[in-house]
C-alpha cells in the first residue's frame, strides 16, 4: 500500500503512468477503428472517454493528468513544422490556385464567425461563452490567441476547438458525399477550414493532395484570423 502511495505522489512515476495510458489507449483505439471504421469509434472520441473513466476512478484531477501529459500536446509544435513538407511537395498546385484558396479562407472564416454568433444567439447564449465559440474552427494555438483578443475564455475555446475537430473530421466525410465537389481544392479546403488539425489528418487519409491543401488552408485560416482579431475585438466591443 505504501508503495502505491509513493508511486502516486512521485511526479516522474505519474508522468510515465499517464503518458503510457494515453499512448497505449490511443494505439488501441486506432487499431479498433481500423478493424471497425464507424464514425463514433474515432480514436479522438474513444481514447479520451476511457481516459476520463480512468482518471475519475483514480481520483485524479484534470490538472494533475494534464501536467503529466503536457509534453504530448507540445508535440503539436513540431507537427505544425511538419506541414512544411506536404505544402512544399504540392507547391505547383498551390502556386497555380492560390487565389481560389485565399477566397475559400476568407469566405470560410467569415462564415465560421457569423454562424457561431448566429446559432449561439438563437439558442440564447451570450457574453463570453458566445465569444469563446467564435474561433472554434482554427487550430488550437491560433484559436486561443484570437479568443483572448476578442474577449472570450481561451481555456473554453480550446475545448470547443477539440470538439469541432472530433466531430468535424467525421462530419466532413458525410458533407463530402452530399456535395457535388469536383476539385481536389474544394475537398481539401472543406477539411482544413471546417475541422483544422483533425480535419487535416482525415484529409491525408483521403489523398495526399487533399491533405496538403487542407494543411495549407488551416495555416492560412489561423494567420488571417490572428491578424484580424484585434480589429474584430474592437468591432465587437
Amino acid at each position: 500500500m505504501s508503495m502505491l502511495v509513493l508511486l502516486s505522489t512521485n511526479p516522474i512515476a505519474l508522468t510515465v503512468f499517464w503518458s503510457a495510458a494515453t499512448i497505449g489507449l490511443y494505439f488501441a483505439a486506432k487499431r479498433l477503428y481500423r478493424l471497425w471504421p464507424r464514425w463514433w469509434l474515432t480514436p479522438l472520441g474513444v481514447a479520451p472517454l476511457l481516459l476520463i473513466a480512468i482518471t475519475l476512478s483514480c481520483h485524479t484531477s484534470y490538472h494533475d493528468y494534464f501536467r503529466s501529459t503536457q509534453w504530448l500536446v507540445l508535440l503539436l509544435g513540431p507537427t505544425t513544422v511538419a506541414f512544411a513538407i506536404p505544402i512544399y511537395e504540392q507547391r505547383a498546385l498551390i502556386r497555380r490556385h492560390w487565389p481560389v484558396l485565399a477566397a475559400g479562407v476568407l469566405v470560410g472564416s467569415g462564415t465560421a464567425m457569423v454562424s457561431a454568433w448566429g446559432l449561439a444567439s438563437l439558442l440564447g447564449m451570450s457574453g463570453s461563452l458566445r465569444l469563446s465559440l467564435l474561433p472554434r474552427s482554427m487550430s488550437t494555438p491560433f484559436a486561443m490567441a484570437v479568443s483572448g483578443d476578442i474577449g472570450g475564455v481561451p481555456d473554453l475555446t480550446a475545448v470547443f476547438v477539440v470538439f469541432t475537430g472530433v466531430f468535424g473530421a467525421a462530419l466532413g466525410e458525410a458533407v463530402l458525399y452530399c456535395l457535388p465537389l469536383r476539385s481536389v481544392l474544394a475537398r481539401g479546403a472543406l477539411f482544413g477550414m471546417g475541422a483544422h488539425g483533425a480535419g487535416v489528418a482525415k484529409a491525408h487519409q483521403i489523398g495526399r493532395e487533399e491533405g496538403s491543401i487542407a494543411g495549407l488552408v488551416m495555416v492560412m485560416v489561423g494567420l488571417v484570423n490572428v491578424l484580424a482579431a484585434p480589429l474584430l475585438g474592437y468591432a465587437l466591443h
Partner: peptide, 16 residues
Amino acid sequence: LAEMLLFFIPAVLAIM
C-alpha cells in the same frame, strides 16, 4: 502527420 490525433487527446480531457 500520421500520429497527430494523439497530441490532441490530453487537450480533450479539459472537458473534465
